[in-house]
């Protein structure tokens, strides 16, 4: 992929992931506030989901930054890059799958929640292709619920949340196609950051209205 994607873009994606992580932490803070007031489990899952998703993006920003710094600035060996990428991505897969699962649970009817905890066990072993496919499956359900909410509420905030989750879904779908075309990697990351910007705009509207 280093031949197909310019090195500077690794630095850009690292910034994208860090910004996404900060937005995730902001949403999780408000999710925590909601849980403190309502004591609802769905709000606890929302808090935990965005907290771990933020951690996941923070972890993901490290391999990108390390790749850029090693090759562009220090002209270092690719062995250390591969090692950092291997562990960085594996940690990201685990943390963000946990996050998506928490978000999935926050949208799941209460009666079904306990049954889905058992299903989570094999997810820990998932990686790369399986990771993206599982993420797509989990986020598809969240997008479906958000779209239903948008249809009912018909307000901008619901639209922004629906767009945010849809862009995360598109991000994972496009990453599945990166072996065929490197340019898809660009588009995927652009989708991701626009999704988080829309989430940030929703938060500003929630807090400042």
């Amino acid at each position: 992929m280093t031949e197909l994607i310019p090195l500077w873009f690794y630095a850009v994606t690292s910034i994208f992931y860090t910004c996404s992580a900060i937005i995730c932490f902001l949403v999780s803070y408000f999710g925590f506030k909601a849980h403190r007031i309502t004591s609802e489990k769905s709000h606890l899952f929302l808090f935990l989901g965005f907290l771990t998703l933020g951690l996941g993006f923070l972890v993901l920003s490290v391999p990108s930054l390390f790749t850029y710094a090693t090759l562009e600035l220090y002209h270092g060996s690719s062995i250390s890059i591969n090692l950092i990428n291997y562990y960085g991505f594996r940690l990201y897969y685990i943390v963000s799958l946990f996050a998506y699962f928490m978000l999935f649970l926050s949208y799941l009817p209460k009666k079904l929640r306990s049954k889905f905890f058992i299903l989570f066990v094999p997810i820990w072993y998932a990686s790369s292709f399986e990771f993206h496919v599982l993420s797509v499956a989990l986020i598809s359900f969240i997008v479906f619920r958000c779209a239903a909410n948008l249809k009912e509420k018909k307000n901008l905030n619901s639209g922004l949340v629906t767009y945010a989750f849809t862009s995360i879904l598109v991000f994972h779908l496009l990453l599945l196609l990166t072996p065929f075309s490197g340019s898809v990697y660009f588009v995927a990351n652009i989708f991701l950051i626009t999704g988080f910007v829309s989430l940030l705009y929703m938060l500003i509207r929630v807090v400042c209205k």
């Binding site: 909601a34 609802e40 949340v161």
Partner: peptide, 17 residues
């Protein structure tokens, strides 16, 4: 004021209070 913010957030996500 806190309740209003929480209500707007939960409505945006479609997770009822």
């Amino acid at each position: 004021n806190e309740l209003r913010k929480v209500k707007r957030l939960t409505e945006a996500f479609g997770i009822p209070m």
